[in-house]
Write a protein that binds this DNA or RNA. Structure first.
Lengths: 208, 208
DNA sequence: ATTAGTTTGTGAATTACTTCACAAGCACGG
DNA sequence: CCGTGCTTGTGAAGTAATTCACAAACTAAT
């Protein structure tokens, strides 16, 4: 299959979230034009995005909402449950572990790790914070699909090495460093400082 | 000045974080090639990014680290302090309010708002959670540059309307909805569910 | 001085992404 | 069952972003 751009995947994700809202409102069909308006894009973009995976619409009518939702969930791999481990039991780790939205979308947090003796052993909801030294052993027993890395910048490269060794192929990285991983490991970065700096840039350069 | 792509601004931000690390190590110069390796890009990309703002390097030698850092801080508007208000005193809001990294980079959290009576009046570090109904009044007295919106999806459109009315021109949005704002307001979205879905997609479509 | 070895800055070429524009398909009304 | 009004799917055209590739500029060594 043709390579799919990251921007496309982001939009698919966005469309899905709109469709779920629309489904709750009870609407049966939606046009590419309406989806585009919701997502701040164009109808041609919506149709092109979807057409990369098949043709799901009916000409003259639009897209059937439940069918398209289902199709998008399938494309995005949301049919199955993904097992997630969180590494770093700080503020961000805690906020993530408790966020209900993940489980709803099939991302199940199954373990939390840290290297701080203060934190190890603490209970978080139904989980206990475990020493990071146990990660590899644990991973051999239970399978993890995704690692969320929320460690201080200085520890992150070492932590990521360990993660890669366990065979985990997807990392969501909150640490403000660029990860170096083998090409078969997918990384997504979330970097608050970078987002704020983007806003700072926009504020500083208005009107030129 | 030519319009600068968001991807470029992201990279500038990234370069700056590397330069700060390098500066601490005491290195005086760096080549576009080394910066590229750190940032997972190409040397041509680095040079092109920088050349949009001037020519800061010395041929045969590279870039002087402190000078380039300073220049990037200036380009990104990090010379001044930005006043930030956080709206939504939930998990994410709390994690952000306490994150030390912001202040270091000149983003000063000066107020926190919520509409939940349980939360209003609670003290957070040096701040007190205020009722969101006071936002507009407060904004008239103290100036806010940036609003961080971390409210539940359903309240977000109304909250954003209020934010826009105060004259704030930059919003960092954590709510999983697409904001509709006037074109002179800059929005950056951070959406954890979307990032995880991107990883889910990658895991589901390996090797085709 | 001259030469060898680097590395920048930047047009040109390439690749990737988005938008245009229209034939083809479908629903509905008469 | 034919026409009217919509809306999709998609090549072609247009933009935008990235990479190539090389002259120009600098250092250091001899």
């Amino acid at each position: 299959m043709k390579r799919i751009a990251e921007s496309t995947v982001r939009r698919l994700s966005l469309y899905l979230s709109f469709l779920e809202g629309i489904e709750r409102q009870g609407l049966k069909t939606i046009s590419s034009d309406e989806l585009a308006r919701l997502g701040g894009t164009t109808s041609a973009q919506v149709r092109k995005d979807l057409s990369l995976f098949g043709s799901f619409g009916k000409r003259g009518l639009g897209y059937a909402v439940p069918e398209l939702s289902e199709k998008l969930r399938e494309i995005l791999g949301l049919g199955k449950q993904w097992r997630v481990c969180i590494i770093g039991a700080g503020k961000i780790g805690a906020a993530l572990a408790r966020y209900r939205g993940f489980a709803e979308r099939g991302f199940i947090v199954t373990a939390v790790y840290d290297n701080d003796h203060e934190k190890i052993g603490k209970r978080w909801e139904s989980l206990t914070v475990r020493p990071i030294s146990e990660l590899e052993k644990d991973a051999a027993k239970q399978h993890f699909d995704i690692a969320v890395v929320a460690t201080p910048a200085e520890n992150t490269p070492a932590v990521v090495k360990q993660v890669v060794r366990t065979g985990i192929k997807a990392i969501l990285n909150f640490a403000p460093v660029q990860l170096s991983v083998p090409s078969d490991v997918t990384v997504r970065n979330v970097n608050m400082a970078m987002e704020l700096e983007g806003l700072s840039f926009a504020l500083s350069n208005r009107g030129d």
